[in-house]
């Protein structure tokens, strides 16, 4: 059994350094259209005024239930989607900051290698007709490494990095298990020395006994290469394990952001507390589910008034129904969007 080796804890506050990525008031609306002339009836507010930052070498997790906009946010950052409004300031190596939201396709081109994606499904994200060499080598070829021998060397190096044997280079994805395929996906994402890696549910499609391997690999690679992760997930246990800070999303908005241990131990938003209480703990002596969250997640096309969480919140008061709470820093590094954040004592998980 491998010993648990402690990674250096990440400082969450870099008072001097600029964040690698700073997202300000990001919005992405999808219009609801009808009829031949496609007149717009309304908007699905998939991402509705989201702000956060990620420092270099840090992992920020974006958690939430399905439909909360976490994937849309990550796709906006990668500019797979063009945001409706907002800023996404990305620090380039020469210390200038560019707004990813404003750039054209041509202007984005040199920045693309710096932002890479690890996909959720290792089965559909690898082309079954390409060998490992083609898959991992394609980003290199596209970005100008035309010498085949150089490419072979780099692909071999990458495969070793993710714990695969370089001899596998000529094989096709079907010869590999889910965990190995995810390693291939990670090798491809790392081929161009990205500075920001967006991992969208990278382990939720894997078997339980393999998940830990991929998590450890991601932690090790981060330590060795000083990678920055935006980790999108719905599983709080996994998030606790990998991230330095966590942002909780609900119906297109971030409701709470804090350092991982603080968020789990001292949640300040009732939704975060309910989410924590809902995780089934693998211990029959600890009965979970004491706090039951009633009702359903509202539709982002037709959200409730005031705070979007008020219809399900047991602490809701009048002001929650009328006004949307401001997303403010309540204690250093702990941002909450709740009218009653300061007065509520919510149960957390140690």
């Amino acid at each position: 059994m491998t010993g648990t080796n402690h990674l250096p804890s990440q400082a969450s506050t870099h008072p001097s350094a600029q964040p690698l990525l700073q997202v300000k008031n990001l919005k992405k609306y999808f219009p609801i259209q009808k009829g031949f002339f496609r007149h717009v009836l309304g908007n699905v507010r998939a991402v509705d005024d989201v702000s956060f930052f990620i420092h270099e070498g840090e992992t920020l997790a974006l958690v939430g239930e399905s439909g909360c906009g976490k994937t849309t946010t990550s796709r906006c950052i990668l500019r797979a989607l063009t945001p409706t409004s907002g800023q996404m300031l990305f620090g380039t190596p020469d210390a200038t900051r560019v707004d990813l939201a404003k750039l054209t396709r041509q202007e984005l081109r040199p920045l693309r290698p710096q932002m890479q994606l690890i996909f959720q499904d290792p089965y559909s994200s690898l082309n079954p007709r390409m060998t490992l060499f083609d898959i991992v080598g394609e980003p290199l070829l596209v970005n100008g490494m035309t010498n085949r021998r150089e490419r072979v060397e780099r692909v071999a190096e990458l495969l070793r990095l993710v714990g695969l044997r370089p001899e596998f280079m000529q094989r096709y994805p079907h010869a590999f298990s889910g965990g190995q395929r995810q390693r291939i996906g990670i090798a491809r994402a790392l081929a161009l020395h990205p500075r920001l890696v967006v991992a969208d549910e990278p382990i939720s499609a894997l078997d339980v006994s393999v998940q830990a391997q991929i998590l450890n690999l991601m932690l090790d690679l981060q330590k060795r290469m000083n990678l920055t992760y935006l980790f999108v997930a719905h599983n709080l246990s996994v998030v606790k394990h990998i991230s330095a800070r966590v942002a909780v999303m609900y119906v297109g908005k971030i409701v709470e952001t804090a350092e991982t241990t603080e968020l789990f131990a001292l949640p300040k938003h009732p939704y975060t507390a309910a989410l924590l209480a809902a995780v089934p703990v693998p211990d029959p002596r600890v009965k979970t589910g004491s706090v039951e969250l009633k009702g359903e997640v509202p539709s982002p096309a037709n959200p409730p008034s005031g705070c979007y969480f008020h219809p399900r919140c047991e602490f809701a008061v009048d002001v929650c129904r009328r006004e949307a709470p401001a997303y403010r820093e309540r204690s250093p590094g702990h941002f909450v969007a709740c009218h009653r954040a300061d007065e509520l004592k919510l149960p957390g998980i140690a």
Binding site: T2, N5, S9, V210, T261, F264
Partner: peptide, 18 residues
């Protein structure tokens, strides 16, 4: 298995292979 009770950012013991 990662747990909500575990310490963050510590390598998990793994089961080798698949």
């Amino acid at each position: 298995i990662p747990s909500v009770h575990s310490t963050p950012r510590v390598n998990l013991p793994t089961i080798s292979g698949s």
